[in-house]
């Protein structure tokens, strides 16, 4: 069993190189995130006067959503990376090696976690640069990053399952479109009090809302434990369920 740790590490390191080896992989999502941050931050700046935002700085309000959208959208990257290896046959080469086959899955997921961490870190840095104040300080930022990693893993599991199920690169990439409603049917741009009708209902059903709200209160308000723990609980349960489903699907396809 000790082998699986070093095996996972070898595969993690190789997958990380593959990801970073194509700079566009790294830069594109960060560029889009920065663009969304600047554009929406300026576009909706004055909606803050509607009230209920809990802050006078719209950019600070937006930070949590920017982090969530980047880690959610990156979910397809993990599926796509795995699929590229399956299609190139490198995956078979790994399966031929005398290693525990789960090390391939774990190595892939570790890259997903690393990716979510780096992406969130860049966004936090950008937010600090434009003057956003994080009420919970350094500890709060670390907690947000941790939550972002967990949530990134959730959507990576989603991407991996889509890749394993469809075995199709185009489908896997465009499957990111399915993530759109989850990202936008949230309190992305407006606080809950300003929402109404079916939209408000959808927002309350969408689990993404709760994870984002947890990050948001850490940015704007401080250690509001009920909101934070709800977000952590939602992300944790989703991760547990999806990890189990992914592992099951992976085992069925490789064992």
């Amino acid at each position: 069993m000790g082998g699986i740790i070093s095996e996972t590490f070898f595969i993690y390191r190789r997958n990380l190189k593959t990801w970073i080896g194509v700079p566009a992989n790294v830069i594109a999502p960060l560029f889009i995130s920065a663009l969304l941050f600047i554009l929406f931050g300026s576009m909706f700046e004055r909606t803050i006067s509607l009230g209920g935002f809990g802050t006078e700085d719209y950019k600070a309000f937006l930070v949590a959503w920017i982090i969530v959208q980047v880690v959610v959208f990156s979910g397809t990257d993990s599926g796509f990376a795995l699929l590229m290896d399956i299609m190139s046959g490198y995956f078979d080469k790994l399966l031929l090696a005398p290693i525990n086959r789960f090390s391939i899955l774990f190595g892939t997921l570790m890259v997903s976690g690393t990716r979510a961490l780096l992406q969130s870190l860049v966004i936090v840095g950008l937010a600090l640069a434009v003057g956003v104040r994080f009420e919970t300080g350094v500890l709060g930022i670390l907690a947000m990053l941790a939550l972002a990693v967990v949530f990134g893993l959730v959507w990576s599991c989603m991407g991996i399952m889509i890749a394993l199920k469809t075995r199709n690169a185009q489908v896997t990439q465009t499957a990111g479109l399915l993530f759109f409603p989850f990202i936008f049917l949230t309190t992305a741009f407006m606080p809950e009090d300003q929402l109404s009708g079916w939209f408000k209902v959808a927002v309350k059903i969408n689990p993404v809302t709760y994870v984002m709200e947890a990050m948001r209160v850490m940015t704007l308000d401080g250690w509001d434990w009920p909101t934070i723990l709800t977000g952590v609980w939602v992300a944790g349960v989703m991760l547990a369920v999806l990890l189990a489903a992914t592992t099951w699907m992976y085992r069925r396809q490789t064992a």
């Binding site: 082998g3 095996e7 070898f10 190789r14 190189k17 593959t18 080896g21 194509v22 190139s88 046959g89 490198y90 078979d92 080469k93 790994l94 031929l96 090696a97 005398p98 290693i99």
Partner: peptide, 26 residues
Amino acid sequence: FAMQEVGLDDLSSGRDFLVMQGLLYK
């Protein structure tokens, strides 16, 4: 097992590919 033209890691160098194979085979 050498497969037909497939199973290569295009983004890694020839040397790194072989070292990785060595690591996978302990």
